[in-house]
Protein backbone atom coordinates (compact mmCIF):
# COMPACT_ATOMS: atom_id res chain seq x y z
CA UNK A 1 0.00 0.00 0.00
CA UNK A 2 2.79 2.37 0.92
CA UNK A 3 4.97 1.50 -2.02
CA UNK A 4 2.52 2.94 -4.54
CA UNK A 5 2.16 6.11 -2.47
CA UNK A 6 5.92 6.57 -2.47
CA UNK A 7 6.13 7.00 -6.22
CA UNK A 8 5.30 10.67 -6.08
CA UNK A 9 4.92 12.68 -9.26
CA UNK A 10 7.20 15.70 -9.30
CA UNK A 11 5.43 18.96 -10.05
CA UNK A 12 6.91 20.58 -13.19
CA UNK A 13 8.99 23.69 -12.67
CA UNK A 14 10.58 26.43 -14.76
CA UNK A 15 10.74 25.64 -18.45
CA UNK A 16 8.86 22.35 -18.06
CA UNK A 17 6.06 24.16 -16.31
CA UNK A 18 5.90 26.62 -19.21
CA UNK A 19 5.71 23.77 -21.74
CA UNK A 20 3.02 22.10 -19.63
CA UNK A 21 0.97 25.27 -19.58
CA UNK A 22 1.30 25.81 -23.34
CA UNK A 23 0.24 22.21 -24.00
CA UNK A 24 -2.66 22.54 -21.63
CA UNK A 25 -3.79 25.77 -23.25
CA UNK A 26 -3.90 24.21 -26.70
CA UNK A 27 -6.00 21.28 -25.51
CA UNK A 28 -8.89 23.66 -24.82
CA UNK A 29 -11.00 25.58 -27.34
CA UNK A 30 -9.79 29.07 -26.32
CA UNK A 31 -6.81 29.62 -28.66
CA UNK A 32 -8.71 28.24 -31.66
CA UNK A 33 -11.64 30.53 -30.95
CA UNK A 34 -9.27 33.49 -30.90
CA UNK A 35 -7.77 32.53 -34.25
CA UNK A 36 -11.24 31.95 -35.70
CA UNK A 37 -12.38 35.32 -34.36
CA UNK A 38 -9.48 37.17 -35.99
CA UNK A 39 -10.07 35.46 -39.31
CA UNK A 40 -13.78 36.15 -39.24
CA UNK A 41 -13.06 39.82 -38.62
CA UNK A 42 -10.45 39.99 -41.39
CA UNK A 43 -12.76 38.16 -43.79
CA UNK A 44 -15.65 40.56 -43.12
CA UNK A 45 -13.30 43.48 -43.67
CA UNK A 46 -12.08 41.97 -46.92
CA UNK A 47 -15.62 41.23 -48.15
CA UNK A 48 -16.73 44.78 -47.47
CA UNK A 49 -13.73 46.52 -49.04
CA UNK A 50 -12.33 44.24 -51.67
CA UNK A 51 -14.64 41.25 -52.16
CA UNK A 52 -17.97 42.93 -52.78
CA UNK A 53 -16.75 46.52 -52.82
CA UNK A 54 -19.74 47.80 -50.87
CA UNK A 55 -20.58 51.52 -51.27
CA UNK A 56 -18.42 53.87 -49.15
CA UNK A 57 -16.12 51.01 -48.17
CA UNK A 58 -14.38 51.44 -51.51
CA UNK A 59 -12.80 54.56 -50.02
CA UNK A 60 -10.94 52.36 -47.52
CA UNK A 61 -7.95 50.21 -48.34
CA UNK A 62 -8.74 46.52 -47.85
CA UNK A 63 -6.63 43.97 -45.97
CA UNK A 64 -4.85 42.84 -49.12
CA UNK A 65 -3.86 46.39 -50.17
CA UNK A 66 -2.71 47.16 -46.62
CA UNK A 67 -0.59 44.06 -46.17
CA UNK A 68 0.97 44.57 -49.62
CA UNK A 69 2.18 48.01 -48.60
CA UNK A 70 2.91 47.19 -44.96
CA UNK A 71 5.33 44.38 -45.73
CA UNK A 72 6.81 45.86 -48.90
CA UNK A 73 10.38 47.14 -49.15
CA UNK A 74 9.15 49.82 -51.54
CA UNK A 75 5.76 50.87 -50.13
CA UNK A 76 3.54 52.66 -52.61
CA UNK A 77 2.20 55.08 -49.98
CA UNK A 78 5.39 55.61 -48.04
CA UNK A 79 4.99 53.57 -44.81
CA UNK A 80 6.03 49.96 -44.27
CA UNK A 81 7.96 47.86 -41.81
CA UNK A 82 11.06 48.56 -43.88
CA UNK A 83 10.92 52.36 -43.69
CA UNK A 84 12.72 54.23 -40.93
CA UNK A 85 9.90 56.75 -40.82
CA UNK A 86 7.48 54.11 -39.51
CA UNK A 87 9.73 53.41 -36.53
CA UNK A 88 10.28 57.11 -35.90
CA UNK A 89 6.57 57.60 -35.44
CA UNK A 90 6.32 54.54 -33.18
CA UNK A 91 9.29 55.43 -31.01
CA UNK A 92 8.21 59.05 -30.59
CA UNK A 93 4.75 57.98 -29.46
CA UNK A 94 6.15 55.30 -27.17
CA UNK A 95 8.57 57.74 -25.56
CA UNK A 96 5.79 60.21 -24.94
CA UNK A 97 3.65 57.48 -23.38
CA UNK A 98 6.50 56.35 -21.17
CA UNK A 99 7.06 59.88 -19.91
CA UNK A 100 3.36 60.66 -19.50
CA UNK A 101 2.49 57.34 -17.88
CA UNK A 102 5.56 57.59 -15.65
CA UNK A 103 4.69 61.07 -14.42
CA UNK A 104 1.02 60.20 -13.97
CA UNK A 105 1.83 57.05 -12.02
CA UNK A 106 4.57 58.68 -9.99
CA UNK A 107 2.26 61.50 -8.92
CA UNK A 108 -1.10 59.77 -9.01
CA UNK A 109 -0.38 56.66 -6.95
CA UNK A 110 1.13 58.44 -3.92
CA UNK A 111 -1.46 61.19 -4.09
CA UNK A 112 -4.32 58.69 -4.25
CA UNK A 113 -2.85 56.65 -1.41
CA UNK A 114 -2.43 59.70 0.79
CA UNK A 115 -5.95 60.86 -0.01
CA UNK A 116 -7.29 57.47 0.98
CA UNK A 117 -5.17 57.29 4.09
CA UNK A 118 -5.68 60.73 5.55
CA UNK A 119 -9.07 62.34 5.93
CA UNK A 120 -7.63 65.85 5.94
CA UNK A 121 -5.60 65.40 2.75
CA UNK A 122 -8.74 64.07 1.08
CA UNK A 123 -10.89 66.96 2.28
CA UNK A 124 -8.27 69.33 0.95
CA UNK A 125 -7.69 67.91 -2.52
CA UNK A 126 -10.49 65.59 -3.53
CA UNK A 127 -13.12 68.23 -4.40
CA UNK A 128 -10.68 70.01 -6.72
CA UNK A 129 -9.70 66.78 -8.46
CA UNK A 130 -13.32 65.76 -8.83
CA UNK A 131 -14.05 69.14 -10.38
CA UNK A 132 -11.24 68.91 -12.92
CA UNK A 133 -11.73 65.23 -13.73
CA UNK A 134 -14.92 65.48 -15.80
CA UNK A 135 -13.42 68.12 -18.13
CA UNK A 136 -12.78 66.26 -21.40
CA UNK A 137 -9.15 65.99 -22.37
CA UNK A 138 -9.80 67.68 -25.71
CA UNK A 139 -11.10 70.71 -23.83
CA UNK A 140 -7.63 71.10 -22.33
CA UNK A 141 -5.97 71.34 -25.76
CA UNK A 142 -6.10 75.14 -26.25
CA UNK A 143 -5.01 75.80 -22.67
CA UNK A 144 -2.09 73.41 -22.94
CA UNK A 145 -0.91 74.96 -26.21
CA UNK A 146 -1.11 78.43 -24.69
CA UNK A 147 0.65 77.36 -21.55
CA UNK A 148 3.41 75.08 -22.78
CA UNK A 149 6.01 75.72 -25.44
CA UNK A 150 6.77 73.54 -28.46
CA UNK A 151 5.09 70.36 -29.61
CA UNK A 152 6.23 67.96 -26.89
CA UNK A 153 4.98 69.89 -23.87
CA UNK A 154 1.28 70.06 -24.70
CA UNK A 155 1.15 66.49 -26.06
CA UNK A 156 2.76 64.96 -22.98
CA UNK A 157 0.76 67.21 -20.68
CA UNK A 158 -2.53 66.02 -22.15
CA UNK A 159 -1.63 62.33 -21.96
CA UNK A 160 -0.35 62.76 -18.41
CA UNK A 161 -3.45 64.60 -17.27
CA UNK A 162 -5.84 61.96 -18.54
CA UNK A 163 -4.01 59.07 -17.00
CA UNK A 164 -3.29 60.95 -13.76
CA UNK A 165 -6.98 61.28 -12.87
CA UNK A 166 -7.64 57.59 -13.42
CA UNK A 167 -4.61 56.51 -11.41
CA UNK A 168 -5.29 58.85 -8.50
CA UNK A 169 -8.93 57.91 -8.20
CA UNK A 170 -8.20 54.19 -8.32
CA UNK A 171 -5.43 54.40 -5.75
CA UNK A 172 -7.77 56.27 -3.42
CA UNK A 173 -10.61 53.81 -3.92
CA UNK A 174 -8.07 51.04 -3.38
CA UNK A 175 -7.39 52.35 0.12
CA UNK A 176 -11.13 52.66 0.74
CA UNK A 177 -11.56 49.03 -0.26
CA UNK A 178 -9.26 47.74 2.48
CA UNK A 179 -11.18 46.02 5.26
CA UNK A 180 -11.23 48.05 8.48
CA UNK A 181 -10.15 44.94 10.41
CA UNK A 182 -6.69 45.00 8.82
CA UNK A 183 -6.17 48.50 10.19
CA UNK A 184 -7.38 47.38 13.60
CA UNK A 185 -5.16 44.32 13.54
CA UNK A 186 -2.18 46.47 12.60
CA UNK A 187 -3.02 48.84 15.45
CA UNK A 188 -3.24 45.99 17.95
CA UNK A 189 0.10 44.66 16.83
CA UNK A 190 1.71 47.93 17.77
CA UNK A 191 2.17 49.64 14.39
CA UNK A 192 3.05 53.27 14.05
CA UNK A 193 1.05 55.29 11.54
CA UNK A 194 3.86 54.93 9.03
CA UNK A 195 4.01 51.14 9.57
CA UNK A 196 0.31 51.00 8.75
CA UNK A 197 0.90 52.98 5.56
CA UNK A 198 3.71 50.69 4.41
CA UNK A 199 2.21 47.37 5.48
CA UNK A 200 -1.52 47.83 5.09
CA UNK A 201 -2.34 50.82 2.90
CA UNK A 202 0.12 50.19 0.06
CA UNK A 203 -0.23 46.40 -0.37
CA UNK A 204 -3.97 46.50 0.33
CA UNK A 205 -4.55 49.07 -2.39
CA UNK A 206 -2.33 47.35 -4.97
CA UNK A 207 -5.07 45.34 -6.71
CA UNK A 208 -7.08 48.51 -7.31
CA UNK A 209 -3.96 50.45 -8.29
CA UNK A 210 -3.12 47.96 -11.00
CA UNK A 211 -6.66 47.88 -12.30
CA UNK A 212 -6.34 51.65 -12.47
CA UNK A 213 -2.97 51.50 -14.23
CA UNK A 214 -4.33 49.21 -16.91
CA UNK A 215 -7.12 51.67 -17.61
CA UNK A 216 -4.81 54.64 -17.30
CA UNK A 217 -2.31 53.40 -19.87
CA UNK A 218 -5.19 52.97 -22.31
CA UNK A 219 -6.45 56.44 -21.52
CA UNK A 220 -2.91 57.79 -21.96
CA UNK A 221 -2.76 56.27 -25.45
CA UNK A 222 -6.00 57.72 -26.66
CA UNK A 223 -5.40 61.16 -25.26
CA UNK A 224 -1.88 61.10 -26.68
CA UNK A 225 -3.18 60.32 -30.14
CA UNK A 226 -5.83 62.99 -29.84
CA UNK A 227 -3.15 65.47 -28.79
CA UNK A 228 -0.82 64.44 -31.61
CA UNK A 229 -3.63 64.98 -34.07
CA UNK A 230 -4.11 68.55 -32.89
CA UNK A 231 -0.57 69.54 -32.11
CA UNK A 232 2.32 67.41 -33.19
CA UNK A 233 5.14 66.89 -35.62
CA UNK A 234 5.63 63.15 -35.32
CA UNK A 235 3.93 60.17 -33.74
CA UNK A 236 1.27 57.69 -34.72
CA UNK A 237 -1.59 60.12 -34.10
CA UNK A 238 0.09 62.68 -36.30
CA UNK A 239 0.69 60.00 -38.94
CA UNK A 240 -3.04 59.19 -39.05
CA UNK A 241 -4.09 62.81 -39.54
CA UNK A 242 -1.25 63.56 -41.92
CA UNK A 243 -2.08 60.56 -44.06
CA UNK A 244 -5.74 61.50 -44.12
CA UNK A 245 -4.93 65.10 -45.12
CA UNK A 246 -2.72 63.89 -47.94
CA UNK A 247 -5.35 61.41 -49.03
CA UNK A 248 -3.13 58.34 -48.52
CA UNK A 249 -5.34 55.94 -46.65
CA UNK A 250 -3.00 52.95 -46.31
CA UNK A 251 -0.59 54.56 -43.77
CA UNK A 252 -3.64 55.81 -41.89
CA UNK A 253 -4.94 52.28 -41.36
CA UNK A 254 -1.44 50.90 -40.71
CA UNK A 255 -1.00 53.47 -37.94
CA UNK A 256 -4.35 52.54 -36.46
CA UNK A 257 -3.58 48.82 -36.39
CA UNK A 258 -0.11 49.53 -34.98
CA UNK A 259 -1.70 51.55 -32.18
CA UNK A 260 -3.95 48.61 -31.44
CA UNK A 261 -1.02 46.23 -31.11
CA UNK A 262 1.12 48.57 -29.02
CA UNK A 263 -1.81 49.41 -26.76
CA UNK A 264 -2.53 45.72 -26.24
CA UNK A 265 1.12 45.04 -25.50
CA UNK A 266 1.45 47.90 -23.02
CA UNK A 267 -1.63 46.81 -21.07
CA UNK A 268 -0.28 43.27 -21.00
CA UNK A 269 3.01 44.58 -19.57
CA UNK A 270 1.20 46.45 -16.82
CA UNK A 271 -0.88 43.37 -16.06
CA UNK A 272 2.20 41.15 -15.92
CA UNK A 273 3.97 43.57 -13.59
CA UNK A 274 0.90 43.62 -11.36
CA UNK A 275 0.73 39.83 -11.19
CA UNK A 276 4.41 39.73 -10.34
CA UNK A 277 4.03 42.22 -7.49
CA UNK A 278 0.86 40.62 -6.16
CA UNK A 279 1.62 36.91 -5.98
CA UNK A 280 -0.66 36.68 -2.96
CA UNK A 281 -3.57 38.11 -4.90
CA UNK A 282 -3.07 35.85 -7.92
CA UNK A 283 -2.92 32.80 -5.65
CA UNK A 284 -5.98 33.91 -3.74
CA UNK A 285 -7.96 34.27 -6.95
CA UNK A 286 -6.66 30.91 -8.15
CA UNK A 287 -7.94 29.31 -4.93
CA UNK A 288 -11.36 30.71 -5.69
CA UNK A 289 -11.15 29.01 -9.09
CA UNK A 290 -10.55 32.15 -11.13
Amino acid sequence: MNSSANTTTVAPEGFNLFIYRVKKKFTGPDPYLTVAGVFLWLFTYWVLCEGLEIWRFTKLPGPVAISKDWFSTTPFQGISIFTAEYYDHISVSCQRILIAFGIATGLGVPLGLFMGWSRSIRDYLFPVIELLRPIPILAWVPLSILLLPGFEGPVIFLATLASFFVTTLNAMLGVDSIDEEYFRAAGCLGSSRWDVFKNVVVPGALPFIFTGLQISIGVAWFSLVAAEMVSGDLGLGYLIVDAYMNNVTVPMVIAMITLGFIGYFSSACVRALGDKLMGWHVKELAQQGR
Binding site: D179, E181, A185, C188, P203, H281
Partner: peptide, 13 residues
Protein backbone atom coordinates in the same frame (compact mmCIF):
# COMPACT_ATOMS: atom_id res chain seq x y z
CA UNK B 1 -4.55 41.21 21.17
CA UNK B 2 -7.70 40.74 19.13
CA UNK B 3 -8.54 37.73 16.97
CA UNK B 4 -11.21 38.87 14.58
CA UNK B 5 -14.52 37.36 13.57
CA UNK B 6 -13.67 37.15 9.88
CA UNK B 7 -9.95 36.67 10.30
CA UNK B 8 -7.55 39.51 9.74
CA UNK B 9 -4.26 37.95 8.74
CA UNK B 10 -2.77 40.29 6.15
CA UNK B 11 -3.48 38.48 2.87
CA UNK B 12 -0.37 40.06 1.28
CA UNK B 13 2.01 38.55 3.82
Amino acid sequence: MVVFQHGALFPWK
